[in-house]
Structures are given as C-alpha cells and as structure tokens.
Computed example of a mutant assay.
Amino acid sequence: MVGALQLASYRRFVMLFMDDLGHISQWSAIMAGSLAGTVATVVTYPTDVVKTRLIVQNRLEPSYKGILHAFYTIYHQEGFLALYRGVSLTVLGAIPFSAGSFFVYINLNKIWQEPSFRFSPLQNFINGCLAAGVAQTLSFPFETVKRKMQAQSPCLPHYGGVDIRFTGMVDCFRQTVKTKSVLGLWCGLTANLLKIVPYYGVMFSTFEFCKRVCLYRNGYIESPLSYKLIPGVDQSLQPQELQELKFLRRGNFEPPKPTLEN
C-alpha cells in the first residue's frame, strides 16, 4: 500500500513540476520523490504504530488482542495523536530516504553506461535494490528513534518494553547514543535491509514493466519486453492523439457532411 501510494503520488508531483515541454530537472525529480514519500508515510502512519505495538507487546500478558483492538485501545487510552507519535521523525526520515532512492535510481544509467529506457527487468530490479539500500542506510537513524517512540507508552507494562526512557525525539537520540554509542542508531539495519532491498527492487522493476506494457498497448513500442520504438510513430504525441492519427491513416476519416442553410 505504501509503495502504491508513493508511486502514484510521485507521478502526480512529477506532472506538477514538469515544464511546458514535459521535461523535469533532477532536483525537481528529487523533490517529487521526497513529497511522494511524505504523503505515503503520513497516510499510512497509524497502521505502522499499531504494527509496532503488536510486535513489542508482551506475549504472556498481551495488551492488544488484534489490529482493531489495538486501534481502539490506543485511541481511547492515549488519544488520537498517539496514533501519530513519532510522525515528525518519519517525515524527516522519508525525505532523505525517498530523495536518496530516486536520486540513485535516476543516475544509475551512468553505471550501466546506457540510457535507462534500454534497461532490462533484471537491471531495473538491481537498480531498485541499490537505490533502496543506499537510501535506507542514510535514513535508518530516524527509523530507529521512530520505533522507540512508537513503542513507548505509559499505558503499557514497562513502558512498552523500550530499552531506554526518554521524554521526546531529541532526548531519544541522546539516550540512544549515550547508551549504545552512535552505532546504536543503526542497530537492526541488516535485518531491515533484507526486507526493504528486495521490496524496492520488485517495486521498481514492476513499475517499469507496467510502463512498457502501457507504451506497447498504446502503440509506441514493438514489445513490452523492450523499448524498441515503432518506426514512424511520433513519440511526442499523447495516446489519444496517436490513436486519432492511426484512425486517419487507415482511411476511416469521413469528412463532415455539409449542412443545408435556410
């Protein structure tokens, strides 16, 4: 769901930042990626809080019986804002993550030494993995502190089982570094990469393949398995304009019948 929202939002922001010729600068693309990540994160954040609470709760004395019960209990015991506890960290972390992933992704043509439209599905998968790996490593300290803020609650036994006690975002950073050193902010990175890296690899490769299918069905390329352009097709035309042009070329155009004037 997060990936779908992020890609849908990204396309919207790209359209917003495009110039009259349909071009977009790299920095505008990075900004679009950051905003898309922020939108997707804010919309789905309450479910992330509930997931964290269900994971860290005491299995012998569970505080929540399920997803709906967790939503209900958190809302009634701690208030609506508890479902967005740590969201500022998520937004701050989403900016470098989304910006980093899209920036790396759109510059990987320099590594392959060929234009991005010639990438195979395997290359797109590798690109997504590399982009997510770099971005996740850069933004992981925000993820670490966010999870601690989500889990801690005075309404739970032992404050939710968090290994440190803190009063806010800055104090959580400080206590984590004080207790576990700076590297403590990257604790659990390996396990997270094992989840995030293939996820983004599949997401980006699927996204690019769906683009090719759409281009193929609209008559721009010869096959969805490649970006080989159909000869004689003006690639600057919109799909509807291209279909109208094909209709005219087939000789199906009928001139409007003259009307009789009184």
Results as ranks from 00 to 15, higher is better:
Arg85Cys: 05
Gly79His: 02
Tyr227Gln: 03
Leu60Ile: 10
Pro239Trp: 03
Leu138Asn: 06
Leu54Thr: 05
Ser63Arg: 08
Ile164Pro: 06
Val213Cys: 10
Leu189Glu: 03
Met149Tyr: 00
Ala151Arg: 00
Tyr200Glu: 09
Arg11Gly: 10
Phe207Ile: 10
Gly184Asp: 04
Cys155Gln: 14
Leu35Ala: 13
Asp234His: 04
Ile230Asp: 04
Lys180Tyr: 14
Gly161Gln: 04
Ser120His: 01
Tyr216His: 07
Lys146Ala: 09
Arg118Gln: 15
Asp48Cys: 08
Gly184Thr: 03
Ala135Trp: 00
Gly86Trp: 01
Gly184Trp: 02
Tyr45Arg: 01
Lys228Thr: 15
Thr52Glu: 14
Met149Gly: 01
Pro157Arg: 02
Arg249Ser: 12
Gly37Arg: 05
Cys155Leu: 13
Ala151Glu: 03
Lys178Asp: 13
Cys187Ala: 14
Arg217His: 11
Phe204His: 13
Val87Asp: 01
Phe13Asp: 04
Ser226Trp: 07
Tyr227Arg: 06
Gly160Gln: 01
Tyr200Lys: 07
Leu183Asn: 12
Thr38Met: 15
Glu241Met: 03
Phe142Ile: 00
Val104Gln: 02
Val170Leu: 15
Met15His: 10
Leu229Arg: 13
Ser139Phe: 05
Val202Ser: 01
Phe207Pro: 11
Asp19Met: 04
Ile106Lys: 11
Trp112Ala: 10
Cys210Asp: 11
Val56Gln: 12
Gln57Thr: 03
Ala40Glu: 01
Lys110Val: 13
Ile111Trp: 13
Met169Val: 15
Ile230Tyr: 01
Thr167Arg: 13
Tyr105His: 12
Cys214Val: 08
Ser116Tyr: 08
Thr144Ala: 04
Val162Met: 03
Cys187Asp: 15
Leu16His: 13
Gln77Val: 05
Asn109His: 15
Tyr75His: 13
Phe71Ala: 00
Asn127Gln: 06
Trp186Cys: 02
Phe247Ser: 10
Pro46His: 03
Pro255Trp: 13
Asn192Leu: 04
Leu83Pro: 03
Pro115Phe: 00
Leu81Gln: 11
Gln235Arg: 12
Thr41Tyr: 12
Asp171Leu: 05
Lys65Pro: 08
Ser153Thr: 02
Ala70Pro: 04
Val49Asn: 08
Leu89Thr: 05
Pro62Phe: 02
Leu122Gly: 10
Val104His: 02
Phe117Trp: 15
Lys178Met: 07
Ala36Phe: 06
Leu54Ser: 04
Lys228Arg: 14
Pro115Trp: 00
Gly79Thr: 06
Leu229Trp: 12
Tyr45Glu: 04
Gly3Lys: 09
Leu225Asp: 08
Val182Lys: 05
Arg174Ser: 08
Thr190His: 09
Gly37Pro: 09
Ala8Asp: 10
Cys210Ile: 15
Pro62Met: 01
Phe117Gly: 01
Leu7Ala: 04
Lys51His: 09
Gly161Trp: 09
Gly160His: 08
Val134Phe: 08
Gly3Ser: 08
Phe204Met: 10
Glu143Thr: 13
Gly188Pro: 02
Ala99Trp: 00
Ala29Pro: 03
Pro198Cys: 03
Ala151Asp: 05
Tyr200Phe: 14
Gly100Cys: 00
Leu7Ser: 08
Ile111Asp: 09
Cys210Gln: 14
Gly79Ala: 05
Leu21Asn: 15
Ala131Phe: 01
Gly219Trp: 02
Thr144Cys: 04
Glu241Arg: 07
Pro46Cys: 03
Gln26Cys: 12
Gly3Ile: 14
Ile126Lys: 09
Phe119His: 06
